[in-house]
Design a protein around this nucleic acid. Structure first.
Length: 690
DNA sequence: TTTAGGG
DNA sequence: CCCTAAA
């Protein structure tokens, strides 16, 4: 099965899980609400399906964006708090990094080494692991080994330098794994810079500090179970061993990165390293750098950081976002989608709201297995609904105020945080410590009656919620865990997914202990717990959509960050356009583009079409009303002529097709080209008039 | 991917 | 210019 579930994990040290953080910071981040996943099912039509997929992908990208944003904020605020600073780096789909391994995938040959690969660019495949299925995008942020692998930075043992990385990965196909040189942005000059760089950071760096060591894969192997585990991470982190040795060369490509990263982190001393590192980071599609560094690296070089300080975070996005659908309707919103797929976990959970959640769960496994082994239960939560909101507003209120009111209501709810409740056969399941088995949740039938609710944590909000009121909550953590770890073996039952204790740290970490079984580094896991990482997770289900969150994005910021710069058409271009249209007509923009603007990369056929549209408009208005560089009247006349001519042609065509109407092809007959040499064209129009 | 249009 | 529905 190539389908590995995709798992995205956002782990943040500091004891909060992403959800918590999100909840808390929601407002800050413009996190506004949840919404049902837009595309639960793909249409039948191939075209639509594609479109739907694209949309889904976009949303996922957005989710990433959101996560990045949130994480960035959190990190930036972490200075005082326990959260270690970290930076997040994301890449488009081209980049893949699998912090999580899928069970299946993990096993493969690849498992051994980590390699950075770049399909388009850089890639980091953890040993095996994680090949993510196509459209999914995962984001991971942690001090864990994974990160190390990702080539991003790792944290140092001391808090001072921690740099966390966030990765997104999405592999189109597992096969891409070829190992390639890690040069990040290959094209970018920056790319190499950092890495190889003279800095022997590695040498300088304490091993333990460097993420490098962590790189070890073995966990991968073990983990192959598929968990992303914190434990492993912790372990590594905690232990200074050199993993490198273990895997040896395999990683080496990756190691470069690591090194680079490492230097940075430790680079209290060198500003240059930092610069290099930054350059390297910049080569990624996205980058979000919270102020993080401030402290860490640079006491000395404040200057460097200055900029960052000023802007709390540095967010860069490239093409990825271009795809984000931020249409008018979406404007200001950020969509996030999280879906999970479990392969084997016994549990998982999702949050959602009481009301409208659509959940689907399937128990899988034979009954008997339970006893000795546990069964795994698959949950598929399709969506969470937004808790019901009650809003009272005068009928004379404006739509705008209504929107604001809704926003406030939503925000209020989210503000307090959300909890997940589990409802089984209509009853809330409050005992977090019981196993799924005990509740019979593993049973397929039961699953059908299993529901999850998303409830606000805050009392007030709770009131607003309709159904959810008090259901119990599951910790997201729990959910996370499952995802993260896919290891089949040990988890199970005991570890019920659901029970996680409420807040704590949970995340998967705790579980990790259990999981630890799989992973070699169990011991470490404990540490983690304490650390409280949080994991957010998401997943991938292939097509399963689990949860969609729609945060309100900060309205302005990323909005159209990438709107193309305006590039007015020069008279020369207009002329070329007019000429091409005279010959080709108004319905063949691609040809026009090829013919007259083939080399103008910034002019798309859509642009040409739009320009034509404006030219026509311009030609029809008085000269006084025209703006911008004046277009010679002569050209405008030609525009009108051509427009009229071709309009008629089209009209004729249409007519012909439908009902055979008598149309004397006055103009049509001759070559358009010839006809259009001059003003004569206008005359052509006349006849057509029928 | 292109077209065709609305925004 | 952007965004999309359609084709």
């Amino acid at each position: 099965m190539r389908v590995a579930p995709q798992v995205a994990v956002l782990e943040i040290l500091g004891g909060m899980n992403l959800w918590d953080m999100v909840s808390q910071k929601r407002l800050d981040n413009g996190f506004g609400g949840y919404r049902l996943p837009p595309i639960p099912h793909f249409p039948k039509s191939a075209k639509r399906k594609r479109s739907a997929r694209k949309r889904r992908d976009d949303e996922q990208l957005c989710a990433f964006d959101l996560l990045v944003e949130v994480a960035g904020k959190l990190s930036s605020e972490s200075e005082n708090s326990t959260l270690p600073p970290f930076c997040i780096i994301g890449r488009s789909k081209e980049v893949a990094y699998a912090s999580n391994k899928l069970p299946q995938a993990s096993k493969p040959e690849h498992s051994e080494p980590l390699c950075l690969r770049l399909k388009s660019k850089i890639y980091d495949t953890a040993a095996g692991g994680s090949v993510v299925s196509n459209s999914g995008i995962g984001i991971g942020c942690s001090a864990s080994t994974d990160i190390c692998r990702s080539g991003l930075i790792r944290k140092s043992s001391e808090n001072r330098l921690e740099l966390e990385a966030m990765d997104i990965y999405s592999l189109e196909d597992p096969m891409d794994l070829d190992v390639k040189p890690p040069a990040p942005a290959s094209s970018d000059s920056s790319a190499e810079v950092p890495v190889s760089r003279d800095n022997p950071c590695s040498s300088s760096m304490p091993k333990h500090e460097s993420g490098i060591e962590h790189i070890v894969h073995r966990d991968d192997d073990d983990n192959s179970s598929g968990c992303t585990h914190p434990n492993t991470i912790t372990n590594k982190a905690s232990r200074p061993t050199n993993c490198i040795g273990d895997h040896g060369e395999q990683n080496f490509s990756a190691s470069k990165y690591w090194k680079a990263a490492i230097n940075l982190s430790k680079s209290t001393n060198s500003a240059s390293d930092y610069a290099i590192f930054m350059a390297w980071l910049t080569s990624f599609d996205y980058m979000l750098l919270p102020d993080i560094q401030r402290k860490p690296f640079l006491h000395d070089k404040k200057t460097c950081y200055t900029r960052q300080r000023t802007q709390r975070s540095y967010f860069k996005r490239r093409k990825l976002f271009e795809r984000c659908p931020v249409s008018a309707s979406n404007r200001g919103f950020f969509r996030m989608k999280v879906s999970n797929t479990f392969k084997k976990d016994s549990n998982k959970l999702e949050a959602h709201d009481p009301r409208g959640t659509a959940i689907r769960a399937n128990g899988v496994t034979s009954p008997k297995a339970e006893q000795s082994s546990y069964k795994s239960v698959k949950f598929s939560i399709k969506s969470f609904k937004i808790p019901e909101l009650y809003i009272e507003i005068p009928e004379t209120a404006t739509v705008g105020s209504l929107k604001r009111a809704v926003m406030e209501a939503v925000t209020a709810i989210l503000q307090g945080g959300l909890r997940v409740g589990v409802i089984l056969q209509g009853k809330k399941v409050r005992d977090d410590n019981k196993t799924l088995c005990q509740f019979g949740i593993s049973n397929g039938d039961a699953l059908d009656s299993l529901g999850f609710t998303l409830e606000p944590t805050t009392t007030q909000m709770a009131q607003q919620l309709t159904s959810s009121d008090n259901s119990r909550f599951l910790c997201l953590d729990d959910a996370v865990q499952p995802l993260a770890r896919i290891p089949p073996i040990s988890l199970p039952i005991d570890r019920d997914p659901s029970d996680a204790s409420p807040q704590p740290a949970l995340t998967s970490c705790p579980k990790s202990d259990h999981d630890s079984v799989h992973s070699p580094t169990n011991t470490l896991s404990l540490d983690k717990t304490t650390e409280n990482k949080l994991a957010l997770v998401a997943l991938p289900a292939m097509d399963v959509e689990a949860l969609a969150v729609v945060p309100l994005r900060k309205p302005k910021r990323l909005e159209h960050a990438q709107r193309r710069i305006r590039r007015p058409f020069s008279v020369t271009e207009v002329e070329a356009l007019v000429e091409a249209v005279e010959k080709l007509g108004t319905g063949r923009w691609r040809d026009v583009k090829l013919r007259a603007f083939d080399t103008a990369k910034h002019r798309t056929y859509v642009d040409l079409k739009d320009k034509w549209k404006t030219l026509v408009h311009t030609a029809n208005i008085s000269p006084q009303q025209r703006r911008g560089e004046p277009v010679p009247q002569e050209l405008l006349d030609r525009v009108l002529s051509a427009q009229a001519y071709w309009s008629q042609q089209q009209a004729k065509l249409r007519i012909k097709e439908e009902p055979p109407l008598p149309l004397p092809p006055v103009l049509c007959s001759s070559d358009p080209n010839q006809q259009f040499s001059s003003s004569s064209s206008s005359s052509l129009l006349e006849p057509v008039g029928t």
